Simulated scan of single mutants.
Amino acid sequence: MRAGIVYNPIKIDRDELAVRVESAQPLEWSEPVWFETSADDAGEAAVRSALDAGVDLLLVAGGDGTVRVAADAVTSAHVPLAIIPAGTGNLLARNLGIDVTSLKNAVVNAFEGDEREIDLGELEIEAPDGTRSKHAFAVMVGFGLDAEMIEKTDEELKKKVGWLAYVDAAGRVISGLDKVRVQVRLDGGRTTRSTVNTMLIGNCGTVTNGIVVLPDAVVDDGMLDIALIRPQGARGWLQVAGYVARNNLLVTKLLRRTGHLGRQRTGAALGYGQAKETHARLEEPRAVQVDGDVVGDAIALRAGVREDALVVRVPHRRSHEGVAV
């Protein structure tokens, strides 16, 4: 047995990671093979090299972009993925209950954790010029507040204060966020029309700093969860804030995890849905983000789900749980 380790040298120190790997790896395993990502590559070359080396386990130490690339690649290679959180958001790691604060715990989980099959989303977007592109996603895609916030985040500030840089960007974006008419169809059903400023489609429901925005999302239920954010003025934004605040109360999370809370209700300011496939067409182009990376402008998008496509290592106590508390 042999592990392949893909790491971003800007986000994690190889020597420190190597010490943790040496202490956690089973004695009978061969020496791991290391692959470094580069500044002009999200990790695709490093991940492919690791898989071509015939590894039995892939450890990925990097940001959400590198994890997304690795998740897409290992689905066809049938190699388990172990996440070593080293980014700002660490979104998939949070949703799987992996410790994002301890390198030691994350590495131990990589070698000793349970294996869990989870879904992987797939997004196709149509650009204003008619060209199409496809993107895998493990956590969430969307346009509006989240995409604009990511696009406007100061990278230097992000390096200094981490996720708080997103708060700064949100404050600058939210007052000038434009609405757009959008047509949405879920699973081939009736097309609905709405005026929104944000649309989210998620395989997971928890985002930066552990905030739950899609409370019914479960990473292995074979469904994608959809949210249409459509506040009318300041009162509407207060309603949205109220939804989010209630969903992030500890008691709410516990009741939902234990099955004592029904599905999230839809309101005037925030509508929820669930589907295996979602189609949306926008009246005007908007920037689209995929797991925290803006991938371009779109006038239409289609999102689907690959059920149980990805095998990940997760902590024992959370191997069969949904949203992390």
Score class of each variant (00 low, 15 high):
residue 160 K to L: 15
residue 192 T to S: 15
residue 99 D to N: 08
residue 167 V to G: 12
residue 151 E to I: 04
residue 139 V to T: 10
residue 191 T to C: 09
residue 132 R to A: 07
residue 173 V to D: 07
residue 180 V to W: 06
residue 88 T to Q: 06
residue 159 K to T: 11
residue 120 L to T: 04
residue 149 M to S: 11
residue 151 E to C: 09
residue 94 R to K: 10
residue 187 D to Q: 00
residue 106 A to C: 06
residue 157 L to T: 12
residue 198 T to I: 15
residue 196 V to S: 08
residue 103 L to H: 09
residue 195 T to I: 13
residue 195 T to F: 06
residue 175 S to Y: 01
residue 134 K to H: 11
residue 138 A to Q: 00
residue 116 R to G: 01
residue 93 A to D: 00
residue 145 L to Q: 00
residue 146 D to T: 08
residue 90 N to K: 05
residue 145 L to T: 05
residue 108 V to L: 11
residue 154 D to F: 03
residue 179 K to M: 10
residue 156 E to K: 13
residue 90 N to Y: 01
residue 86 A to S: 12
residue 93 A to M: 04
residue 105 N to L: 15
residue 184 V to F: 04
residue 137 F to T: 00
residue 98 I to L: 05
residue 121 G to T: 00
residue 199 M to A: 12
residue 128 P to T: 00
residue 193 R to F: 15
residue 183 Q to Y: 00
residue 96 L to E: 06
residue 189 G to W: 03
residue 198 T to F: 12
residue 126 E to T: 15
residue 182 V to W: 06
residue 156 E to L: 11
residue 179 K to N: 15
residue 169 A to D: 12
residue 105 N to S: 12
residue 189 G to A: 02
residue 124 E to L: 15
residue 102 S to N: 10
residue 173 V to M: 04
residue 158 K to F: 05
residue 171 G to L: 04
residue 173 V to F: 00
residue 120 L to W: 11
residue 198 T to Q: 15
residue 106 A to F: 03
residue 103 L to I: 09
residue 121 G to W: 06
residue 140 M to G: 01
residue 149 M to A: 10
residue 147 A to G: 02
residue 89 G to H: 02
residue 110 A to G: 09
residue 172 R to D: 13
residue 177 L to M: 02
residue 97 G to A: 03
residue 162 G to Q: 02
residue 175 S to N: 12
residue 163 W to K: 14
residue 178 D to Y: 08
residue 177 L to K: 02
residue 123 L to T: 01
residue 91 L to K: 03
residue 138 A to D: 00
residue 140 M to T: 13
residue 154 D to M: 07
residue 117 E to C: 14
residue 147 A to D: 05
residue 165 A to T: 02
residue 119 D to E: 00
residue 86 A to Q: 01
residue 197 N to R: 11
residue 113 G to L: 02
residue 160 K to N: 02
residue 89 G to A: 14
residue 94 R to M: 14
residue 135 H to P: 05
residue 151 E to Y: 14
residue 183 Q to T: 12
residue 156 E to P: 07
residue 193 R to Q: 14
residue 192 T to F: 12
residue 117 E to M: 13
residue 117 E to I: 09
residue 123 L to M: 08
residue 117 E to P: 08
residue 150 I to H: 01
residue 186 L to E: 10
residue 102 S to F: 15
residue 187 D to R: 03
residue 123 L to G: 03
residue 172 R to S: 10
residue 179 K to V: 08
residue 132 R to D: 01
residue 174 I to F: 03
residue 133 S to T: 15
residue 190 R to M: 14
residue 107 V to L: 09
residue 193 R to W: 14
residue 164 L to S: 09
residue 178 D to H: 10
residue 92 L to Q: 06
residue 118 I to P: 03
residue 162 G to I: 05
residue 148 E to W: 07
residue 113 G to V: 06
residue 105 N to Q: 14
residue 111 F to Y: 11
residue 167 V to D: 04
residue 112 E to S: 14
residue 105 N to T: 09
residue 157 L to G: 10
residue 177 L to Y: 02
residue 185 R to S: 13
residue 123 L to Y: 02
residue 161 V to P: 00
residue 161 V to T: 04
residue 103 L to S: 09
residue 134 K to M: 15
residue 86 A to L: 05
residue 138 A to N: 06
residue 179 K to Y: 10
residue 143 F to N: 09
residue 117 E to L: 13
residue 110 A to W: 07
residue 177 L to V: 07
residue 154 D to I: 04
residue 139 V to A: 11
residue 148 E to M: 06
